[in-house]
């Protein structure tokens, strides 16, 4: 395959890239979706699966607003995708809790959410600080170590893997060209004419979308852009399936549609290193067992570490 030409090419086949590629294809463009191979970093595969509002956009009201709007458009999106692919994304938005294990954590949390409410202005921001008893009513089985929680009704969760599959499936079904195992060896840009030299031959398009996650940091300068993103490691533990139900997700614990309980979410600045570290895994497990002693009795059947795509200030980059 040499010298293929498209209306648009999207570099990166994760959740962002495949969604954009799908959208462009739906608008009738010929689209190539360029992806890495099986062993890529792929933040999409490591994602925890929260559709989360209550922690997003402190000090950045615009980001808080977008997050809310984005969460609100999720049910429509999930319905659409289910209709197209017959695949449930397991979306559930019952609201969510952030659990606090000390009075200090509780006070800090209250201050933070009060600030978000202030910054939301007329857009509004509904939240409640719950004492231990109120939190226990919402989440039976909370441990005695939990002193309280914050609640917002906007939060929820979804299966990121089902979403990824649905996107790839949908894009291919619409006639998009999915090109995995691509290695870019050269880039040449001109107005409305972007050309990539790759191991699959030359790929050319009028429009290019950079959705390569951490790869964007290196790609962007070739296109006259800046994307100073860095890797931030997060580790996740997953338990065996259980019938005991967790009615709503918390910031670090959620139950999947299959019944597994996912435990997260750690933050480590260790560069491009996806190894696991036992102390961090133990800390995640420790905190989870404190929050829900019954989770302590479940087996961890899977665990992983993956890299978040983080901007310098943790906010979206708009150039």
């Amino acid at each position: 395959m040499t010298g293929r030409r498209f209306d648009a090419m999207v570099i990166g086949g994760g959740l962002v890239g495949s969604a954009i590629a799908w959208g462009l294809r739906r608008e009738g463009l010929s689209v190539a979706l360029l992806d890495e191979g099986d062993a890529a970093f792929r933040a999409s595969r490591g994602n925890f699966g929260l559709v989360w509002v209550q922690s997003k956009g402190l000090g950045a009201p615009w980001y808080q607003r977008w997050t809310r709007q984005s969460a609100e458009s999720w049910p429509g999106l999930a319905d659409d995708l289910a209709k197209q692919n017959g695949l449930s994304l397991g979306l559930s938005q019952p609201g969510g809790l952030h659990l606090c294990l000390s009075d200090r954590e509780m006070n800090k949390r209250a201050e933070r959410l009060e600030q978000m409410k202030r910054e939301a202005g007329n857009y509004g921001f509904e939240y409640r600080m719950l004492d231990a008893r109120e939190a226990r009513d919402l989440l039976p089985g909370l441990g005695p170590a939990v002193v309280g929680a914050s609640f917002t009704p906007y939060d929820g969760h979804v299966s990121p893997l089902a979403l990824l599959r649905s996107r790839h499936q949908g894009f291919t079904a619409l006639g998009g060209v999915y090109l995995p195992n691509v290695k870019i060896t050269g880039i040449a840009t001109a107005p409305r004419n972007f050309l990539l030299e790759t191991n699959l031959g030359t790929i050319q398009a009028e429009r290019a979308v950079l959705a390569a996650g951490l790869g964007n940091a290196k790609l962007a300068p070739h296109f006259g852009l800046k994307a100073p993103v860095r890797p931030q490691r997060g580790q996740v533990l997953v338990t065996e399936r259980t019938r005991a139900a967790l009615p709503m997700p918390t910031t670090t614990i959620r139950q999947t549609g299959e019944g597994s309980i996912m435990l997260g979410d750690s933050v480590e600045e260790v560069g491009f290193d996806t190894r696991q570290s036992q102390p961090v895994m133990a800390e995640i497990a420790h905190r989870a067992a404190l929050c829900f002693p019954w989770i302590g009795r479940l087996n961890v059947v899977r665990a992983w570490s993956a890299l978040r795509v983080m901007s310098p200030d943790g906010l979206p980059i708009y150039d």
């Binding site: 533990l237 065996e240 036992q278 895994m281 497990a285 989870a288 479940l298 087996n299 961890v300 665990a303």
Partner: peptide, 20 residues
């Protein structure tokens, strides 16, 4: 496949005990 630890299931509590 890229296998990950724990290589065999252990309880959340055991894993917590590994550090604490």
């Amino acid at each position: 496949f890229r296998p990950r630890a724990p290589y065999k299931p252990i309880t959340v509590q055991e894993l917590a005990g590994a550090q604490h």
